[in-house]
Each structure stands twice: as structure tokens, then as C-alpha cells.
Design a protein around this nucleic acid. Structure first.
Lengths: 212, 212
DNA sequence: GTCTATAAATCGATAGAC
DNA sequence: GTCTATCGATTTATAGAC
């Protein structure tokens, strides 16, 4: 009985999942404009009608694809900053992962290409903005808490560091999509360069204007 | 006689220039995919045939548009770092300009969208890479020479600073194309955060491994 | 909910007249 | 070199059968 009952809602959930899965591969491989809904449907073993039964259109499908990717990335980042990991290793592991897994060129390229498309659809644009702000806040929290635990501080406000990392991640990925020789270590180098040990002489009340 | 003679090559040069001019407006306004060659031609006062008489196709037209924009940007930057400007003001003026004029969202959005398109055309991709490398080298030279003159140095290799600024400029512009509330001061803040006064005690021969 | 068939529109690119 | 006319190919989206 249980196997027969899942044939109702579960069946469609699988269809939707399969479509997203195939769409993700194609969007990443040939970009947003280069992907047609018909090919996605056929490759997934369905027809175009199935796509329109599960998504309002191409933009909503891509939005769903990006959501699954975002969920994966966020899960990975949260793992890297998990309490199971020694405090000293968290930042190091994250930077190592950022070299390859974070700013995958294909993903970043899709992200920015779709952002360009979304400019003409206010609803999609607002959805993207919502997601970007959430991600930025997450980065912000992870940075500030991790640095504090490690006895470090940023040389500029942490909000700006978060924005900088987000922008640089997108930019580096976009550049590398064209030029494989891009130095991805820049991401970690900049973050490292914006960090310093907490100086205990700064907040000591008296002298505030020492250098320059 | 002089006015009649320019009717040969000069006439076509004006056509080409006018097409680029209109194409630039449209590409920036509605993006690469959203711009049709027919509309460009009509808006410029010609027909589509004129476009194909002057450009090999849509991609070459966009490449020409990007080249004129790049030329403008580079000219502006060189002015900002000109010898006519006091050394202390150069970086400050550049950072002020970077807040608005450097990473215009429309331009950046076009740049990244076209980069996504160029992934499928090896020749266009190589042309873009060529341009990016030139720009990166220019940034690199300007930073290193300007900082040296001002008694400053970067906390990470200047090559990485140049790559970071290029990537962050693209990323920030792309983000702002969607979200106008993006803090563009981040660009200057990061650059400032990666700079420090030249420390005369570092290169003093003896101790090389002090911290961590 | 999925499929088939088709509508409807667009656009890049080309050929030939002038 | 520019214009007119058109090809050809694609794609999004919809309507109706099952």
C-alpha cells in the first residue's frame, strides 16, 4: 500500500527533481541562452509539456536549479565551519576549498548570465537579490564568528569583507570561465590580507591617532 | 575637393561609428541577448545589411562596442594617474571615481553576459582574454608605481591585487545591476585595506621568519 | 500530469538589386 | 556599401488528447 500511495505526489516530485538535475547539467555546460527546454525535457526522458507542468517557464526552472546549487554550497560551507572542525583549521580548509570548489567557472558563469537575463524580469530580479542578501549575511556571520574565535580581526568592516568576497568570487569565477590561467589563490590571499591579529593596544583608551 | 574626397572612406567610417554608437546604447540597455541587429540598424538609420557590411556578425559588433568602452575607461584611468595630478591625490581620485564611473552596472552586466556567450566561440573567447590580460597588466603597473611613489606597499603581491580589483570590479558591478543597494565603497575599502606604509624594518637582512 | 502537435514570433545570416 | 526580401533554423509557450 505504501508503495502504491507514493505514486501520486512522489511520482511528480521525482519528475521535478529529474528535470532540475538535467537542467543543471545543461545550464552549466552551455549556459542559460544555450539551453533549450526541449532538450532538457528529452534528455530527462520527458517532453516539453512536463517542464511546463512543473515550472512556470525557463526562468523559474533556472531559479530552481540555482536554488539546489546554492543549497549544496551552503551545506558545504557550514560543514567547513562546523564545530567538529578545530578553530584553526576552519579558515584554512575554507580557503583551500575556495580555490576549486567555491568559484567553479561554469556555475559562476551561469549565475552572472542569468543575472543579466533577470534584469528584464522584476520578479526574478527580486528573487535573486533576496538570495544574494541571505548569502552575504551568512558569509558575514561566519567570518566574524570564526575570526573572533581565532583571535583575528578584519582591517575593514566585516560587512564590506563579506560583500568583497561575494563580488570577488563571482568575478574570479567569471574570469576563469574565459581564462583558465586566472590565479584563484587571489581569493584566499585577499581575505588573508584583510585580516590581522587583534591588536590589544588599539582599544586601550588613551592614544587613538598613532600612525599616519 | 576635400569635402568630396572624404565621401569615400570617411562615409563608411561614420556609418561604422554610428552603428557602434547605437549598438552600445542598446547592448547596455537591454543586454546582449536582448539586442537584435535589426533594431540596431534601424535605430542608427540604416538597415541590417549595413551591419553585415561593417561587421562579421553580432559577436564582432559587440566586441567593437566593448573596445570603445574599454578605450574610454583606460583613457580616464590614465588621466587620473597622470603626472599632472599630485601623487597623494591620484589614488584618492581613482577610488572616488571607482564608486560610480568604473563599475557601471550596465557595462559590467554586458561584459559578463558577453563573456558567457564567448565561451562557445573560441576566437571571441581568446580576444576577450587578450583584453583582460592587458587591463590587468595596466592596473598592476599603475598600482605598483603609484604606491611606490606614495611610500606605500601592498600586503599581498601586486599581481594578486590587480586580479582581485579586476574580479571585484566585475563582481560588484554585476551585483549592483541587480541590487542597487550594493555598497560600492567596498572597492576602495579593500584596496585601502590591502595597503600599508612601507615598513623599513622588514627588509633589514637578518630576521625573515618572525610571525607564525 | 504528461504527451503530441502546433502556434507564433524572433532573429541571425545571406542573396541579389541598385 | 547599402537596401530589400527572404531563408532557415530555433525556441518559448500553448491547446487539446490521453
Amino acid at each position: 500500500m505504501s508503495e502504491a500511495k507514493v505514486s501520486r505526489a512522489e511520482r511528480q516530485r521525482q519528475t521535478r527533481e529529474r528535470l532540475i538535475e538535467v537542467a543543471e547539467q545543461m545550464f552549466l555546460a552551455v549556459g542559460y541562452a544555450g539551453t533549450s527546454l526541449d532538450k532538457v525535457a528529452v534528455e530527462a526522458g520527458f517532453s516539453k509539456g512536463a517542464v511546463y507542468s512543473n515550472f512556470a517557464g525557463k526562468e523559474e526552472l533556472c531559479l530552481a536549479v540555482l536554488d539546489t546549487i546554492h543549497a549544496q554550497k551552503i551545506r558545504r560551507v557550514l560543514d567547513l565551519f562546523s564545530e567538529d572542525v578545530p578553530i584553526e583549521s576552519r579558515l584554512k580548509n575554507f580557503l583551500e576549498w575556495s580555490r576549486s570548489g567555491l568559484g567553479e567557472p561554469q556555475w559562476t558563469a551561469l549565475e552572472v548570465e542569468f543575472a543579466a537575463v533577470a534584469r528584464h524580469n522584476p520578479w526574478v530580479a527580486s528573487e535573486l537579490v533576496k538570495r544574494h542578501r541571505e548569502v552575504r549575511r551568512l558569509i558575514e556571520q561566519l567570518i566574524s564568528s570564526t575570526l573572533a574565535d581565532a583571535g583575528l580581526e578584519t582591517t575593514i568592516p566585516v560587512e564590506q569583507v563579506a560583500t568583497a568576497l561575494l563580488a570577488m568570487g563571482a568575478g574570479l569565477g567569471g574570469l576563469r570561465a574565459l581564462d583558465p590561467r586566472i590565479d584563484m589563490d587571489v581569493f584566499g590571499a585577499v581575505l588573508t590580507g584583510l585580516v590581522r591579529p587583534i591588536s590589544s593596544d588599539e582599544p586601550t583608551s588613551s592614544d587613538a591617532s598613532s600612525s599616519s
